[in-house]
């Protein structure tokens, strides 16, 4: 009997080792451990044994059953594992096929840059003012200390609609409109982005372009504040290593006036083609609001001072993206617009 049990065990183990599928293992389980299985059959014959033999053989039979079960479970787990691995191996994708195409549009680069400029100044406590693009001569020139026949009117070739109505040549009229509306309340801190127009059309001039104007008026605004604000702007717009340089200049609506250069974004100031080997790039004009402009707009120039600046969005956009032809910005060629 004992011999028989051990033979069953040996045979079952051998068959299990050769099993190739879960089905085969299941058949082995049924064949040996099932209700009609071999081991079950042997155990049924235990009744014929002597009472002394019965516990010993019973113990052996249990051991054999446990052994076979353990082995069966073991083999099943290993086989399942192998099958899973084979399945995963067979399932692999070509991960180099392109992903699903999502159709995202793009903002125009001028909008991207304008928003960036706006966000920087919003963070500095400036709000955003707007004004008409078709303007009165008064706001575009006279109230900015540019009376008729002023030679500085030549600096801005103007599109006229009537003698008194024109396309604004800069965003500066928004300064005047804002001050007129606000005076005598303080402080005034605005930027004014928008379209402007000049009678110029070549590789470096577009008859329509964009500016962002800035204005701060308060009791104690100084040129040092102007330098500080523009330095913060330059660092945030062009990177923390950017330096600014002020050069005296002339605008009828500011006194003192300055043009501001930043260290060249291409070469960092060492000199390259972009900066004509000077290391500097001009990006904006600015100054302290001319006392006459303050007075005409309703402020007492003895009590308040202000600074103003104006920058060209196209220029900054071209610098930022390395665009070498201004006209691309207005051609709206998809192959261009998709790059931003």
């Amino acid at each position: 009997m004992e011999q028989k049990l051990l033979r069953i065990q040996a045979r079952a183990l051998e068959e299990m080792a050769g099993a190739k599928s879960l089905e085969e293992l299941n058949e082995i389980r049924v064949r040996y451990l099932g209700k009609k299985g071999e081991l079950t059959g042997v155990l049924r014959g235990m009744g014929a044994l002597s009472p002394e033999e019965r516990p010993r053989i019973g113990q052996i039979a249990n051991q054999v059953r446990d052994k076979i079960e353990e082995k069966l479970n073991d083999s099943t787990a290993r086989l399942k594992d192998r099958i899973k691995r084979e399945k995963l191996a067979a399932e692999s994708l070509d991960i180099t096929l392109p992903g699903t195409v999502f159709n995202l549009g793009r903002l125009h680069p001028l909008t991207v840059v304008t928003r960036r400029i706006e966000d920087i100044f919003l963070g500095l406590g400036f709000s955003i003012a707007e004004g008409p693009e078709v303007e009165l001569d008064y706001y575009n020139f006279e109230a900015l200390n540019l009376p008729k026949d002023h030679p500085a009117r030549d600096m801005q070739d103007t599109f006229f609609i009537t003698q008194e109505v024109l396309l604004r040549t800069h965003t500066s009229p928004v300064q005047v409109r804002t001050m007129e509306r606000t005076a005598p309340a303080l402080p005034v801190k605005i930027i004014a982005p928008g379209k402007v127009y000049r009678r110029d059309d070549d590789a470096t001039h577009s008859p329509m372009f964009h500016q962002v104007e800035g204005l701060a008026v308060d009791r104690r605004i100084t040129m040092a504040d102007l330098r500080g604000v523009l330095q913060v702007f330059a660092e945030q717009m062009f990177g923390p290593e950017t330096r600014t340089r002020f050069r005296p200049s002339y605008f009828p609506f500011t006194e003192p006036s300055a043009e501001v250069d930043i260290s060249c974004v291409m070469c960092g100031g060492r000199g390259c083609r972009t900066c004509s080997h000077t290391g500097w790039l001009e990006i904006l004009g600015c100054g302290m609001v001319h006392p006459r402009v303050l007075e005409m707009s309703g402020y007492n120039s003895g009590e308040v001072t202000g600074f103003a600046f104006g920058m060209g969005v196209e220029r900054i956009t071209m610098l930022k993206y390395g665009i070498d032809d201004l006209r691309l910005l207005f051609e709206n060629d998809m192959r261009f617009l998709q790059q931003f």
């Binding site: 500095l124 406590g125 605004i221 330098r227």
Partner: peptide, 18 residues
Amino acid sequence: YNRIPYTLPYGASTRGVR
């Protein structure tokens, strides 16, 4: 001009919001 220091406007704070 470049000897003038960098400062930020002093005075009542303003809200910068769209």
